[in-house]
Design a binder for these strands. Sequence first.
DNA 1: ACGACTTTGTGCATGGCTTCACAAGAGCCT
DNA 2: AGGCTCTTGTGAAGCCATGCACAAAGTCGT
Lengths: 231, 231
Amino acid sequence: MGTVDVPEATVARLPQYLRALSVLAEAGLRTVSSEALAEAVGVGSAKLRKDLSHLGSYGTRGVGYDVTGLHRQIADRLGQATPWNVVIVGIGNLGHALAGYGGFADRGFRVVGLFDDGPQVVGEVVGGVRVRPLSELDRVVHPGETIGVLAVPAEHAQDVCDRLVAAGVRSVLNFAPAVLRVPDGVDVRKVDLASELQILAFHAQRRGVRGNVPARVPSLGPVTERVGEVV
Amino acid sequence: MGTVDVPEATVARLPQYLRALSVLAEAGLRTVSSEALAEAVGVGSAKLRKDLSHLGSYGTRGVGYDVTGLHRQIADRLGQATPWNVVIVGIGNLGHALAGYGGFADRGFRVVGLFDDGPQVVGEVVGGVRVRPLSELDRVVHPGETIGVLAVPAEHAQDVCDRLVAAGVRSVLNFAPAVLRVPDGVDVRKVDLASELQILAFHAQRRGVRGNVPARVPSLGPVTERVGEVV
DNA sequence: ACGACTTTGTGCATGGCTTCACAAGAGCCT
DNA sequence: AGGCTCTTGTGAAGCCATGCACAAAGTCGT
């Protein structure tokens, strides 16, 4: 059970569960109920249990889940048994930040290559890794084992993506606001920072006319608190 | 029609449509069919049409949509008639990059404030804006009109978020891998960079055993091309 | 050993989103 | 004017995901 069919929505939550479990483990907890874990992640407990059931994960009824056991199980599913190699292409503002971001190493990723064709950038060392020209992609990418991160301007995104794929990259995280065409068998995820703001703006716009704000949150007396996005 | 009930899934695609329309407009196109626009964004044409129908948008049958007209209509919906103010809290690696990111200004956002309590950072100027201590939040935030971007470590996220809300921020974009509790009426979106990589890793893991890669993409002869994520 | 209590795993109903398929409308050519 | 072609807008069907409610299964205390 749980070998093939894990729903996409569930997959998207697994990293959240994993992180929450790390925190609980460090706090010394040995077991955790679906209720408590769900609360920590901000989802419903039924959803959590169904998600875990897709993994074929076994908790113990009446007790809950073994924290470290469940952690290892999810980590295995995410391929975190050994760290993944990551190359970042485009060492501009964003690329710099990603190269220096500590959050990757903590979660099973190793930045093994930085690439840019700008003459001023090549040779610079960011986070202990030297920036190389794109022509050296093949020397660093292990086909199928390396995730490519695209942090180049939109107009170069497709071109650079093609070169990544040619070098053997099969998973791409794209920060450029552009649609990428990739051959069958290559997986692309897109993160568009401006879009996220625009989605927030849409809701803010609808909430009330700009500036016409219906009262500030009272600074004393706890409000009924909710998790996540509302209207 | 199209006043209240725009499905969330549709909202998430509006920024994509808007961007594609900008490109088409610059290319001099006057009208575009749902087929062509959908192709440019990488979605199905039926989905696009249904999305637009939720806006009450009128195209002309037999012809398509007026490019600039549709652009303005979507921009209005996203509240882009006048630019939104954005404050960024946490000027570390990521905050720096976001502060200097040109992509925001292009899409209707103005960075009006940078905040950090680190003594080395305060006073620094990034992208023409000076970094201030968090105590000055109130001076910059116009209640209800300002979007807050959280780029602080996870352990400070909740605390800083509370201060943003207290200052009148009602829309928060959270880059910290932490769950935020906010009062009713505040909208939070989360971007977790490591999670995105983990999701890619999951699919890569499932695709085949690590390193056991089933043949490289042939370098000559166009492959049947697909858009987006596969397998 | 047994009953009370706790918590998982899941069948089922509900709702939202996507996809298909097509009628209604708009232009164009003869 | 009439018919042809093109494209939109939308009913209807199907699919995926969420949430409820409860039986099965295990623990704990007596």
